[in-house]
């Protein structure tokens, strides 16, 4: 039986004096698991991912985040980065930086010698990650000259180069074309077989249902449903999350995964 690798327990957080962005959230991510985190806009998905990644100061939220049973905030920052990586949906491109240098940033937590740019192991890890994500040929291009989908490939490669056991992907696949989304899904599946775990935030519920094993649905900072994808999708929660979308769930004739149809009946 697989063990819990990352867990949040009674997590509450608010931005200023507004209503809580996270309200007593408890979730557990299994080793080797792919968890889809679904919910309407402003339901607290990104905030939850950032809290799981340890990006908020410890005194700004209540509750606890545990990595393999230990308080995640007990680890130094660089050790946290070797275990859990948060990947946003886009990267800032105000400064001239090549795709290669952007991916090399994933190796920052391994800190080679002070005034040495990167070790041979860092170069190899970056090349391997970029080849795996089919973006090695973009290595010399400036990131501000890349399309949104290409930048997401670079972001995904950076996450792989970082080598963390837990990937927190915040809409990271949203701008990729179908070919690259399928490639990223296969990579996630391959990583899952090697014991890596992923939390996947996606507004594309079919993408989530295709690649995830479990699903957590959030609304107004709370968990409204969680469990295996087939059970949660089949229980009619999606209609409650997205009222007016006229949702129908039916199994995919190819993979058997639940597929969501919406819009005019």
């Amino acid at each position: 039986m697989s063990k819990t690798i990352l867990g949040a327990y009674c997590l509450s957080f608010s931005y200023g004096h507004k209503r809580p962005a996270l309200d007593e959230i408890s979730i557990e991510l299994m080793q080797g698991g792919i968890m889809a985190l679904l919910g309407p806009n402003a339901s607290g998905k990104t905030t939850l991912l950032k809290a799981l990644a340890g990006l908020f100061p410890r005194n700004e939220f209540s509750g606890i985040v545990r990595y393999c049973g230990l308080d995640f905030f007990g680890y130094p920052h660089s050790e946290r980065a070797k275990r859990v990586v948060y990947v946003s949906q886009d990267m800032r491109a105000e400064f001239p930086l090549t795709a290669y240098d952007a991916v090399m940033m994933g190796r920052l937590c391994y800190g080679a010698r002070l005034f040495v740019h990167a070790s041979r192991a860092d170069h190899d890890a970056v090349q391997s990650a970029m080849e795996r994500c089919a973006c090695w040929e973009l290595r010399s291009r400036m990131i501000d000259a890349l399309s949104g989908g290409e930048r997401q490939l670079v972001l995904f490669a950076r996450a792989l180069a970082q080598g963390a056991r837990v990937l927190l992907l915040d809409e990271t696949l949203s701008r990729m074309d179908l070919h690259h989304q399928a490639m990223a899904g296969r990579i996630l599946r391959g990583l899952s077989a090697q014991g890596y775990s992923t939390v996947l935030v996606a507004h594309d519920v079919n993408l989530a249902s295709e690649w995830a094993d479990t699903c957590v649905m959030m609304q107004k900072g709370r968990v409204v449903a969680s469990g295996p994808v087939k059970e949660v999708f089949g229980a009619g929660h999606l209609g409650g999350l997205y009222p007016g979308a006229e949702i129908t769930v039916a199994p995919s004739p190819v993979s058997g995964a639940p597929k969501v149809y919406f819009g005019r009946r």
Partner: peptide
């Protein structure tokens, strides 16, 4: 001597934190 952290800051503070910068 803090050149690595400065590189990470180019990507914004959330990314810098996720890359291991305090």
């Amino acid at each position: 001597s803090r050149w690595r952290a400065l590189d990470a800051f180019l990507m914004g503070e959330d990314t810098a934190g996720s890359l291991g910068v305090s």
